[in-house]
């Protein structure tokens, strides 16, 4: 599928088409932070519309929020609950790390022994346009976990279109049939060699920047070495010392899949079940009904996070449950940098 070029002056027309029969979200710059925002038709061309952040790093909110809802009704009793039909959506300007995070979510919720139909239907109804990340931040480390700052064929399981901002417009490369269809409603024309060269140069510069930010690499045997360190309380306590247990890292994480099911009484013999995001750092997380708790000490919960993401998931699914987005580091009040902890394991 050939890359196209859509000049700046024709972008509004395309977005108007998209927003006519879909819900479109875009990365908006709000107080110098990137946040997902719903695109209202009135925003197109409006002077007070938020600035688009296609050339910034990923949005603050984890992309999983669109599919794995932070809070969601999932069952009722005795009547049976059916989740509502999902709306057609476009995430216009996700990052490549978001696509990788969605892959982790899919492995957990769609490809396992039990399929979460509500997740699967929402995901199937959503088209994802991944924008290149031309200026990775100091917190970014997608290159350490095997990923890259743009989407291509390798990301087509979760990305429908790769978007690159170049001079005068966007280079748009459809990666899936659905992406091709989406582009069909635009006035994009075949991209020129010069435009593709500009895209390539931007991608190479982003890769170079990542190499500068992360000069040390994760070793191929990282998974084994984290597992082998499971008894080293002194090591993990040293790194956990600055954690204030706010759980911000886990809530901001796009690959954390933990959830809690809790039931509310609706009437005699009736209940409503809600699924909410959960965090394995919470003290009661692994506690059983009788009160025993295998991870009562925080250091065990701290280790569990690293084991889960960089060891168990890698061994089990062939990829770490980490996209390298750096949200966890960015939100951490204790300034704990996940990269430094993993690199210290490898020392």
């Amino acid at each position: 599928m050939k890359p196209r070029f859509l000049p700046t002056e024709k972008q509004k027309a395309w977005l108007s088409v998209l927003v006519a029969d879909r819900v479109v979200f875009f990365p908006a710059i709000i107080k110098d932070q990137v946040h997902w925002q719903r695109l209202d038709p009135g925003m197109l061309g409006a002077a007070d519309a938020p600035e688009w952040g296609l050339e910034r790093i990923r949005a603050s909110e984890p992309v999983k929020s669109f599919f794995f809802n932070p809070r969601e009704k999932v069952a009722t009793f005795p009547d049976k609950f059916v989740s509502p039909e999902p709306e057609k959506r476009v995430l216009f300007g996700a990052s490549a790390c978001d696509a990788v995070a969605l892959r982790v979510n899919r492995k957990m919720f769609v490809e396992g022994d039990f399929k979460d139909e509500a997740y699967a239907r929402r995901r199937a109804a959503t088209c994802v346009v991944v924008a290149d990340c031309p200026s990775p931040a100091d917190t970014c480390f997608c290159n350490l976990v095997g990923n890259r700052p743009f989407a291509g064929d390798e990301e087509k399981d979760e990305a429908d279109v790769a978007l690159s901002v170049v001079e005068g417009g966007w280079v748009l490369e459809p990666l899936t049939g659905r992406g091709e269809e989406l582009l069909g409603s635009s006035q994009a024309v075949e991209a020129t060699e010069a435009q593709l060269a500009a895209r390539q140069a931007s991608r190479e510069a982003a890769g170079k920047r990542l190499a500068e930010v992360n000069p040390k690499r994760f070793a191929p045997d990282t998974a084994d070495r984290i597992w082998q360190r499971n008894q080293d309380k002194e090591f993990w306590s040293k790194h956990a010392a600055d954690c204030v247990e706010c759980y911000g890292c886990l809530m901001a994480c796009p690959t954390c899949y933990c959830f809690l099911l809790y039931d509310k009484a609706r009437g005699q013999g009736e209940m409503e079940r809600t699924k909410v995001w959960d965090a394995c750092y919470i003290a009661a997380y692994a506690r059983v009904g009788g009160g025993a708790n295998p991870r009562a000490e925080f250091v065990k919960r701290f280790y569990n996070r690293f084991f889960c993401k960089f060891s168990h998931f890698k061994t089990w699914q062939g990829m770490p449950a980490c996209s390298g987005c750096g949200r966890c580091t960015a939100v951490c009040m204790g300034k704990i940098d996940v990269r430094k902890v993993v690199l210290d394991v490898l020392q």
């Binding site: 919720f109 396992g112 933990c258 809690l260 394995c280 506690r287 025993a292």
Partner: peptide, 16 residues
Amino acid sequence: ETNMSCGLGQCGHCKL
């Protein structure tokens, strides 16, 4: 004995 919650291998609580 672990905190088995979802039963589906998804929610994470029973990880051992």
